[in-house]
């Protein structure tokens, strides 16, 4: 069976700095894959290369067998990839509902029905009429998710989806995403700083350090991996403290 997302030998340098070096991994439909690593490990660069914002120097990205390397974000979107951004990338001059409606395609009536459904799904139904520019950080993340889901993607790329949320909200949001993954066989790749979220929800974890993939496996194996522990201990953070 072909993987939903297949990444081979992805590399990117900025100036002389190798941000991402020869990264390869695969993601199955319905799987929640976490990409973790210390600050500056290359997570966002990786995400950018998958979403089309950053052009890779080398390597291949395949979506369900089709090569999508270096395509424009728009083209990648058209193939069924939704993404959220680390910083808020919403349409600040519109209301929450207008944000989602603008992202949707199809007839007007169908768009407003779908907007209500998506806002209900991410828990923003009550905020539909609010200007997106006035949302709290957690609500911005919910809107980001609704926008990413607007084309019923088969692959969801989420850069720090729960940053700025309270613990209970994080769990609720990740359960929602996990539900989507299971029911609709959506593949989910996400980065996250909060190890609670990672170990509670990821099926598998990739660990990136200084651009290199240093470990890959189920949460238990990652938790026990001495190399991973060393990287994180180096930051003064242990898994017992964090997770």
């Amino acid at each position: 069976m072909t993987a939903l997302l297949d990444v081979r030998g992805l590399s990117k340098s900025f100036g002389g700095v190798e941000a991402v070096r020869d990264v390869s991994f695969a993601l199955a439909a319905g799987e929640l894959l976490a990409l973790i690593g210390p600050n500056g490990a290359g997570k966002s660069t990786c995400f950018g290369m998958l979403g089309g914002q950053v052009r890779p120097d080398a390597g291949r990205v395949r979506l369900a067998g089709a090569d999508i390397t270096g395509l424009k974000p728009r083209r990648i979107w058209a193939r069924g990839v939704g993404r959220t951004f680390q910083t808020a990338e919403t349409f600040a001059s519109m209301t929450v509902a207008e944000n989602v409606e603008t992202a949707l395609h199809g007839r007007t009536a169908a768009r407003s029905a779908e907007t209500r459904r998506l806002l209900g799904l991410v828990g923003l139904a009550a905020a539909a009429g609010r200007p997106a520019g006035t949302l709290s950080y957690g609500d911005v993340k919910r809107l980001e998710l609704a926008l990413a889901l607007s084309n019923t993607p088969r692959l969801l790329l989420m850069d720090e989806p729960t940053a700025g949320m309270a613990a209970a909200e994080r769990t609720a949001l990740m359960q929602l995403v996990a539900g989507l993954a299971r029911e609709r066989q959506v593949g989910v790749l996400f980065t996250e700083h909060d190890m609670d979220v990672v170990f509670a929800h990821a099926d598998r974890i990739l660990v990136l350090d200084r651009g290199l993939l240093i470990a890959e496996g189920p949460p238990e194996a990652i938790r026990a991996d001495p190399q991973v522990r060393a990287v994180y201990l180096g930051e003064g953070l242990t898994f017992s403290e964090a997770g």
Binding site: G51, G52, Q53, K72, P73, R74, I76, W77, A78, G82, R83, F85, E89, T90, F91, A92, S93, M94, E98, E101, T102, A103, H105, L147, A148, S150, N151
Partner: peptide, 19 residues
């Protein structure tokens, strides 16, 4: 709306299929 979307956030506009 699509025009304002492109103005508000070019990155987001591109990832919801707006050229």
């Amino acid at each position: 709306y699509r025009l304002r979307a492109a103005r508000d956030s070019a990155a987001r506009a591109e990832t919801v299929g707006i050229d």
